[in-house]
Design a protein around this nucleic acid. Structure first.
Lengths: 206, 206
DNA sequence: AGTCTAGTGGACCATCGAGTCCGCTCAGCG
DNA sequence: CGCTGAGCGGACTCGATGGTCCACTAGACT
């Protein structure tokens, strides 16, 4: 309960690089196998490090998982910001839809959304990870709702529309689409889900 | 590759009961902890059985998991059939929505959809489970699309509407809603998602 | 040069978990 | 009554896994 003792650990560039290697390796492994099914030895091997380094940089597996949650959140938000920050028309939303679908189509949707998968796996196990993931979802939705608000400003979207609710609906369609696509090994359900959400937004166009 | 040798094992009522106890216990545990995080010792203890019984009734953990997948699918389909088989109007769909939301609101959405959770966790690990889950999703969607078709027959829903696509969209909204609700510990996103899907269906009402 | 600590290698430990095995009980059937 | 096999109890094996420990190295600062 020491409330963040401002850990006075000095860090060297080498240490930073090693830590980053560990987190990135863990991120990849946990993405394809899941968190629980990824062992620290897997991470050690993939990152070309040793056991002591893992425990030098992270208190335990939970701490590493939290670092992965944060890292993945950053990566996704950065990617989505690039895709959404200039969004200001319905056709832009369609382009975003196409990009997301195309990326997921590569493996017939075998890999879903890394954020959604972690949310389902960790929500009941680690409250801290859960709230971090929830915050990332909120930021992601804000990227969308901000775009919708720009559409309102430009007059493309009706003033009566609720950008936050529309963004939540779109995110749910996206996550549900990811899930059904993964289960079916087919991106079609994801396309249908996103098209439904877009169609719903369309009814609020001016 | 012996292609189902029609195992000639005789079964007694007692054996059936024990097997059922094991599957039900495993189902509950895997629902709250996840499949990987549930050990056979957990199952043994919860079902008041012994190790040898687990391996008497199931070849290995994978076989048990598959039995759980089948069991959970049956339970959910039975429940949903009861809710959906008489569906023939939009207000019936709204009642379904309310029932689903209310059930999930009990724990503030802490527990999601057992089917969706298993789909995400198992899709990459066991192809047989994946296809079974996918089939269950398909049947679930059929319960919905059949209801929508009845609405078409009665003239409530436009002939031009695509019941299968609408059902897929609704299911995606449901699953995405479950996921976001679980991450946020709040059912609101689930309500928004379902309302979006219903609103989308509404546009095809006559 | 000397010191101090972050960084590292890797052996080691304790536990857990999947799966095995053997011997017992119980119920049906001759 | 006694045989047989399903059903059962639980100790045991053994590899995997999270976590510890200690000795060594590199680099920054004096």
């Amino acid at each position: 309960m020491s409330d963040e003792p401002v850990k006075p650990r000095r860090i060297s560039p080498r240490g930073i690089a090693t830590r980053a290697r560990i987190v990135e390796s863990a991120d990849q492994l946990m993405f394809v196998r899941g968190v629980t099914a990824t062992s620290l030895d897997d991470v050690r091997e993939a990152s070309q490090t040793s056991k002591s380094q893992l425990y030098h940089h992270f208190a335990d597996k939970t701490a590493l998982v939290r670092a992965v949650v944060a890292y993945r959140g950053e990566v996704i938000l950065e990617r989505e910001q690039g895709r959404l920050e200039r969004l200001k028309s319905f056709s832009g939303l369609v382009r975003w839809r196409n990009a997301v679908v195309q990326a997921n189509a590569l493996q017939n949707g075998a890999y879903g959304c890394g954020l959604g998968a972690m949310a389902l796996e960790l929500s009941d196990k680690d409250e801290q990870s859960r709230s971090a993931l929830s915050a990332t979802f909120a930021q992601w939705q804000k990227l969308i709702s901000d775009g919708l608000r720009r559409m309102q400003t430009s007059g493309a979207l009706a003033e009566t529309a609720d950008p936050d609710a529309l963004a939540t609906g779109l995110m749910a369609a996206l996550q549900g689409g990811y899930l059904l696509a993964k289960a079916a090994h087919d991106v079609t359900p994801m396309e249908i889900a996103l098209d439904m959400a877009l169609s719903h937004i369309k009814t609020s166009l001016t």
